[in-house]
């Protein structure tokens, strides 16, 4: 999707980045059922790692991206450790603490730009050509988003995805079925962190190459959560549907910025009340219903 309007092109790129973030969050939260609020901090870690690696070490984007993912993956393992002992709201609180401390440390670190922000992060280069326009950056962001979606599909439709779901459903029964609960929790956290690191790095190198710690607050985390909840928590398409819709809504409601959190908050509440499995879950529900209705009817006709 290439658009003439530069701003629209920017929005499309942001959608792609948010898809990566939300698909990653859906792995750990939607599938493995770990209520983490630390995802946005992982994105920050990815973004700042990528920024530092490319500016201070002078490495190109193509090296900074994997480095950022690696560092974020390690950070994800650390964020996952509290999940061994904590569940639900308690885990949310612990990860929230971790997330906020990451942001506060960044704000207070002079060499990371502090509260003012980190400037002059270089765009990716192909040879001597800088991909500094939104239109050219699209060719970096979109393939990565598609790759991310593909990987999430193969993970979640494999035995690993099933083990995640088993954790979400019932840890005791999962362990009794031979699932190594801790191992799969860490795998879920690390995989989702790799997504966050990738998205963070992409955000850092996108024009104008500027990062601000205020882009990684609890507000952004709620927006991310909304994407996953609205799109369909634990649904294989959930992160994608949610990221696309919420980013567009976010963009269209920019004039009402001050009300946004109130709107998002109520949408989360309403979704959880009336559409607990999100748009994806709702579609599935209707499909499954129709199928089993057909089977039941066939059976009753047979007897």
């Amino acid at each position: 999707m290439l658009l003439k309007n530069n701003y629209h092109q920017y929005v499309v790129n942001v959608i792609a980045i948010n898809v990566i973030l939300a698909v990653g969050l859906n792995i750990v939260k939607g599938f493995a059922g770990q209520v983490t609020v630390g995802h946005i901090a992982l994105a920050a870690i990815g973004a700042y790692t990528s920024a530092v690696v490319s500016t201070k070490l002078g490495l190109p984007f193509w090296a900074a991206l994997p480095t950022a993912m690696l560092v974020t993956g390690l950070a994800g393992a650390i964020v996952g450790i509290p999940s061994f002992r904590l569940e639900g709201a308690y885990l949310a609180l612990a990860t929230l603490g971790l997330a906020e401390s990451v942001r506060i440390v960044i704000s207070g670190t002079e060499s990371l730009g502090g509260a003012i922000g980190y400037e002059n992060i270089p765009p990716p280069f192909i040879g001597s050509m800088a991909l500094d326009a939104h239109r050219s950056y699209y060719y970096v962001v979109m393939p990565l988003a598609l790759l991310g979606i593909y990987f999430s599909f193969s993970i979640l439709s494999s035995d690993i995805g099933r083990a995640f779901k088993a954790l979400r459903e019932d840890q005791l029964a999962a362990a009794a079925s031979g699932v190594n609960v801790r191992k799969y929790k860490i795998i879920a956290f690390v995989l989702s962190a790799l997504y966050a690191g990738c998205a963070g790095s992409l955000k850092a190198h996108m024009a104008p190459g500027f990062l601000n710690p205020n882009d990684y607050t609890i507000t952004e985390m709620v927006t991310l959560l909304l994407m996953v909840v609205f799109g369909g928590i634990g649904h294989i398409w959930g992160g994608v549907i949610g990221a696309v819709l919420v980013t567009i809504i976010n963009d269209l409601t920019q004039d009402y910025y001050q009300y946004r959190m109130a709107i998002f908050g109520s949408v989360i509440v309403l979704t959880v009340m009336f559409m607990p499995r999100g748009i994806g879950g709702m579609i599935d529900h209707h499909l499954v219903r129709r199928r089993f209705k057909a089977i039941r009817e066939a059976k009753s006709r047979a007897t």
């Binding site: 690993i160 099933r162 779901k165 459903e169 019932d170």
Partner: peptide, 24 residues
């Protein structure tokens, strides 16, 4: 403690988890 949110077949596949041979 069956996995109510998973399909009947998936419940069995989780039971078979330890015997599935491929890596992450």
């Amino acid at each position: 403690r069956i996995f109510s949110g998973m399909s009947v077949l998936e419940n069995l596949l989780i039971g078979h988890h330890g015997l599935i041979r491929y890596n992450t």
